[in-house]
Structure formats: structure tokens, C-alpha cells
Amino acid sequence: MAQRRSKHLLPGFGLTLGVSMLYITIIIALPLLAMLLKVGGMGWEEFWRIVASNRSLAAYRITFSSAFIATIFNGALGLLLAWVLTRYSFPGKRILDALVDLPFALPTAVAGLVLVTLFAPTGWYGQLLEPNGFKVNYTQAGIIIAMTFTSIPFVVRTVQPVLEDIQVDLEEAAKTLGATPWQVFSRVIWPTILPAFMAGCVLSFARALGEFGAVVFIAGNLPGKTEIVSLLIFIRIDEYNYEGAAALAFVLLVAAFCLLLLTNALQSWQTRYADRSR
């Protein structure tokens, strides 16, 4: 981690600054500004009427609660996969490792198409679940499953490197001192991976909040029941109700921004932690 900063000794400051600023301005900042101006132009009362309407509130509730449940599941699954992939060696390990990234590689619309087909009453999963009274398609369970699928890799990929780095001698020392495996995990391993685990969970949650493609296929899109915020924005655009779309998009943008800051804070916590334990 030793790093010497040479003040502008290296070339390319002007060029890279110019390109970066131009690109960020045109591709990222200007469009965001256009939306902020739209929101800024509508007045506080109008804005509040839109973002606090019953339908919007229901959409937040559905979106956030589904993302939360998906994140809890992915936290547990991610921990399991990261553990198995770093601690054990077994046939098929590399394939399993590669498969974890499938949700990043597979387009969300394809994921949605696949999930809605699998969980249809006649689908491979649906025919097992539906007779037992568990309906997934067009219910909130469908939203949760779509969100889960698309954000599986986050926790695995943040926890995995940290688990790999944990010094084995620390664990061995704890074991020779008579610690049970559970004590080793809860006292030694868990505190070390906690920052990375949290960062992975926040990333997973952020992705679930914004997920659209996979969800619209499998969610019933019923206002107040299975309508997520992204879909409501899409409907407002189609209705030519641009104020409505802008206000809701602003809410999602603020949420994304807060989560981004939280991730960065968690990651710098993790870096400090890693430096200290070294």
C-alpha cells in the first residue's frame, strides 16, 4: 500500500482531466441536471403531493421491503458461497465460482423472462409450489425473487477476497488456545469480514432497489400491491405526466446517492481494518 504522490510529476494531468470532465459533464452531469431543473421548477407543494401520494408511498413500501428481504437472503447465501469457495476445495469449484457472476452477465430482461416461465403454474418450479398454495408470479414474492437473482454476486464478491486474506495463523492460534469452531468464527472471522459483508449488502440492496427489467416480467404491476417505484416512473412518462416521473426519479436518485456514500464509507472502514490487521 506504500504510495508516493508525485505532484504532477507524471504527465497527462491536463489531458485526462479534460477528457474526464468533458465526458462526465456531457454523459452524466448534464442529464442529471436536466432532471433536477425539472424537479426544481415544479414547486415544493406539487413535489410533495406527488412523492407523498398514496400510490407513491405504496410503491416505496413494496420496493424497499422487497429489496430488504432479498438482501437478507443474499447476505446469507453470499456468506455461504464465499465461505465454501475460499475454505474448501472440491470438484467443480471453478465452475461454481464462475457461475456466481451469472446474474451480472445475464441481461435482466432475460432473467425476468426465465423467472416468469419457471414460476408459472405449469413451469418447472411453479408446478411444485402452486399446489402448496405458494404463488410467486405476479405477487410480491415474485418481486423478491427477481431482486434476489439479479443481486446474488455482490456479497460473495465483496466477502471472498477478505476471507482469502485472513491469516490462517490467527485462526490456528485461536484453535490451539482451545476455541471451538464457532468461537473462531464469531470472535475472529466475523469481525474481520463484517465491513466487507456490510458493503456487499448495501450494494446488493442498491441494485435491488433499482431493478426494473427482471421485476416487470414477474411482478403483477398492480398499483398498491406489486408496483415498484421504477415502474411507476415508467407509467408516469407514458402518461405524459413528466412532473410525476421527475419527482419519483429524484427520490430514487437521492436514495442511490445515499447508498453510494454509505458504500464508500464502509469500504474505507474495511480498508482501514485490513491495514490494521496486517
Partner: peptide, 20 residues
Amino acid sequence: VPVFETGGRAATTAFTERQL
């Protein structure tokens, strides 16, 4: 009406595929 789809075909799909 439980759901107002944005187009006529989407409404049909809701009725036939989603059995709403």
C-alpha cells in the same frame, strides 16, 4: 380494475397470461 396497463395488448396479457 386491479391494474391499468399502459396499452391494450399489455391488458390482454394481464388477463390471459397472468390470469388477472
